[in-house]
Design a protein around this nucleic acid. Structure first.
Lengths: 335, 335
DNA sequence: ACAATTTTGTCCTAGTTTTGTCCAGACAAA
DNA sequence: TTTGTCTGGACAAAACTAGGACAAAATTGT
């Protein structure tokens, strides 16, 4: 189902015109060419008529270099680095960035060589143990360490998502106290909320309203989506949980959002889900697609199809739908 | 003695441009150059075009010197010290005046006076405007900017607290939509939650359980307290909102907490407040003090005095009570 | 307490390097 | 035709360097 390689590895097949690259990286067309001319920052393939054709790999490189420059790096220094080295440099810089102080014994992956193959199962177990022993500090440490081992999307899918399910399950079975669940949830709220700000925004991103409808009080699913779509160049307008349909509509219109995403978790059989979704669909401009996801989605299949909402089965599916939507709207916009 | 540079794992290869050093240390580029010119605080390598290139070692030195200056040391005195001597000086200073918290956040020349009330007013108005226009990015920018103008405790007291009250008030009066309030609240949840991680923990901090009792769903007050006490060397065990008394007790015992802090906001007349507080007090070891605060505290004056809970009137009052408690317990422990 | 002195952060000028933007003319795509 | 991309080069803005001036704290001396 969820093919991992499409998430973690970056497509190197070339196809994007320079304009799209500029749009997505926040750089100007001229600048991209200048960087190539002077420092060979990227070496795009060419069409048979010498048009530059960039791959997703190139785009990621350019994005990282832009961030590195913002952190004070010089173009001369970062231009020759590989993608992995760039990631290291950027993540190291942002870790020190104005806030966090130096800590001698904290894990520093940038210099300790290549990433070891990671077993998500072990990581999750270690996290559950930290929760059980109320070791908040250790829990945070594990979360941070796990993140640097892989890309954010795959981290959310392979670690954070399963972890959330296991916390819920363990609490239901009495293996964790309510206090443990509270501590873990509160900490994850902070952690996931901060993930979004690892990305830098250029101002040109399409917006997406993300929330949960009335009655749905669990926000972590929605928050994960906010972090996820940031990676792909969307600007989330995150409203927290429990937002009435009217307010979602008002927000989408005022902010000029291109999409709306709702997370449905618990309770699954709340009748308000149907009324709110119906109301939302009828009031929203037909051009704004509504995505739904979460554990409770399965209980509302029929309604969702009837209303014409989109329900990608995995986080990865959501990513692809949104990427397609963004690129489609980009073409319409320039055409 | 045996601590030579070979042991400390700091990279001495020079590669960082001055701008990056400024970012990481919080010093201005002018100041870094001035220090070099006058006291040879650092002696960076040069590129072939005379650009300064700093090593990690240099950065660490500058960071420590900045901290030493904040602690009242004079530049002339600390400039000639080695890295190890600097570390000693800094750790000695921080041990000595760990209670006097003067602005430990960002370096600020001592003669730039404290933030004036009018500035806070302007900041809050600008934030409210950003909220009203759904400009999440601007809102975040304003929050970050405001933070570097003053210390964390005074920022919470003069900006974040009033802002929260005004958001609530404006929503009640219809000046803000529910969607605006949701957006602002969700963003503040992320922002305040992250504040705590500006501090570094050594492992020896006394713990304090922070939450809200059953029925109290607003967590931002509690979260502010978690950030606040981190500054003073407490390790918050933050449980989020709506925690039953039994669970608070279990958590306090399992984690070995020295104090419990509860935030009461809304609804103020919830009868569960009385039952939960009573239950909490009776089950908790008498040695663990319980602090209560928040807008709803006033409605329960009589109960609170009867149970012998502490209710400092301001955030600052809470800080002082906690500092006193920590120092008292420290003395008992050593005596 | 007051004045003199020292310390220290900021700013200025002028020259150099680095980096971002723009232009012109040719060609390609829609 | 109109719009976008290509190359190569010109130009301008931004950032850095050195040296020095200046004024606000902080310290010292009376």
């Amino acid at each position: 189902m969820a093919t991992l390689e499409t998430i973690s590895s970056i497509d190197t097949s070339a196809r994007h015109p320079i304009r799209l690259v500029a749009n997505r990286t926040g750089l100007t067309v001229d600048l991209i060419r200048a960087w190539e001319k002077r420092y060979h920052v990227v070496d795009p393939a060419r069409s048979d008529t010498m048009r530059r054709l960039y791959s997703d790999y190139d785009i990621e490189r350019l994005r990282l270099i832009r961030i590195a420059k913002q952190n004070g790096r010089r173009l001369v220094d970062v231009a020759p680095l590989t993608l992995e080295e760039l990631r290291d440099v950027v993540s190291e810089d942002s870790r020190y960035d104005s806030t966090t102080d130096n800590q001698a014994e904290v894990y520093r992956p940038s210099w300790t060589g290549p990433l070891e193959a990671t077993d998500a199962r072990d990581d999750i177990d270690a996290m559950l143990f930290a929760i059980q022993t109320m070791d908040q500090h250790r829990f945070d440490q594990l979360l941070q360490e796990g993140l640097v081992k892989q890309s954010l999307p795959s981290y959310l899918e392979t670690v954070i998502g399963p972890l959330l399910r296991e916390i819920g399950e363990s609490t239901r079975l009495g293996k964790l106290r309510i206090a443990h669940e509270h501590m873990a949830t509160a900490h994850l709220r902070t952690f996931i909320g901060a993930l979004r700000f690892r990305e830098t925004y250029t101002g040109g991103e399409p917006k997406i309203v993300i929330t949960t409808p009335t009655g749905q009080l669990h926000e972590l699913g929605a928050l994960m989506i906010a972090a996820l779509v940031s990676v792909d160049g969307w600007l989330p307008v995150y409203l927290g949980p429990n937002t009435p349909a009217d307010e979602i509509v008002a927000c989408a219109i005022q902010s000029g959002a291109r999409a709306v995403s709702l997370s449905l978790t618990y309770p699954a059989d709340d009748p308000r889900i149907a009324t709110e979704l119906t109301r939302l669909r009828s009031q929203l401009d037909g051009k704004i697609p509504v995505f739904v996801g979460g554990a409770a989605t399965a209980h509302h299949q029929e309604l969702i199809s009837r209303l014409g909402l989109e329900y990608p089965p995995t986080l990865n599916g959501l990513r692809h739908s949104l990427n397609a939507l963004r690129d489609r709207q980009f073409k319409e916009q320039t055409a």
